[in-house]
């Protein structure tokens, strides 16, 4: 009986979190569409800061991981494919692995680690120090001024970082394929471009945008959940990371299933 109650409570808690995250996403869209003009000069600055921090400042770490991943995929492919005379499949493997799956997921994981934690802890700290109340008192809607730019900014950043990640990992793969195995750049890129269709690009775009929005909304939600004590900030930050990872992977599985099954 206790187990059933525990499970019931756990499901209910998850459902509550999900509905709140959905509410944040919906409010962000409504704010973007219907209230964009309101306080535009102030909110636009928050949006640009978010894109700068989440997108631009993540470029070095994204570059490193993308290059190394490209090298790993080409190394593994070239260690197996020649046994079956399938060197030509390298492009398809790259598209299957990087464009369809790893690009959006890795970009999201990097953003969760860098910016998701920052969003949750910053908002948590603002909530506890009553800065959010102070904004309300000034007639500034915190969802409009603080949350919407963070959600939209994270969505845009993950989208841009995913494409950057994919392009750099393709180049990273060429470092080995070209210089190590004497495969020409045109053959290498031709093989990748042939394997890449609109569906792959579209799904990669959809995934990255959705993941980014989810990260922004989940991390904002957990940040705002910090109530009274400063010790709640690390707790909520951890929950934000776990919650974002869980939702990103579930959404990844759902989208992959829908489009590629």
């Amino acid at each position: 009986m206790k187990i059933i109650r525990y499970l019931g409570e756990s499901v209910l808690r998850r459902f509550t979190v999900l509905s709140s995250v959905w509410e944040i996403l919906l409010s962000s869209f409504l704010n973007l569409i219907f209230r964009f003009h309101r306080g535009r000069k102030a909110t636009l600055r928050v949006l640009l800061k978010q894109i700068y921090f989440t997108g631009f400042e993540a470029i070095p770490i994204v570059s490193w991981i993308a290059i190394v991943l490209g090298l790993i995929i080409v190394t593994q492919s070239l260690s197996i494919l020649p046994r079956f005379g399938g060197e030509g499949l390298i492009g398809e493997i790259f598209v299957w692995v990087v464009i369809r799956e790893v690009g959006p997921v890795f970009a999201s994981v990097i953003v969760i680690a860098r910016s998701g934690t920052a969003i949750a802890s910053e908002l948590g700290s603002m909530k506890i120090s009553k800065e959010i109340t102070s904004l309300e008192v000034m007639g500034i809607d915190p969802i409009h001024y603080l949350i919407t730019p963070r959600v939209i900014g994270t969505g845009i950043s993950v989208l841009l970082l995913t494409f950057y990640f994919e392009a750099v990992s393709i180049l990273g793969g060429y470092l080995l394929a070209g210089f190590g195995k004497n495969i020409s750049f045109s053959v290498y890129t031709q093989s990748i471009l042939e394997a890449m269709g609109f569906l792959e690009i579209g799904v990669s775009l959809l995934k990255s945008l959705l993941f980014g929005l989810i990260i922004g909304a989940v991390c904002s939600y957990h940040g705002l959940m910090a109530e009274k004590s400063i010790t709640q900030i690390p707790q909520q930050t951890t929950k934000a990371v776990i919650g974002s990872l869980r939702l990103v992977f579930v959404m990844d599985a759902v989208i992959t299933f829908v489009f590629f099954m």
Binding site: M126, S129, K130, E131, T133, S134, L135, E136, V137, M138, G139
Partner: peptide, 14 residues
């Protein structure tokens, strides 16, 4: 609220 100004004891600056 935009017609009111508040100065809090803790200042509560952003």
């Amino acid at each position: 609220r935009s017609r009111l100004g508040f100065v809090f004891q803790d200042n509560v600056l952003i």
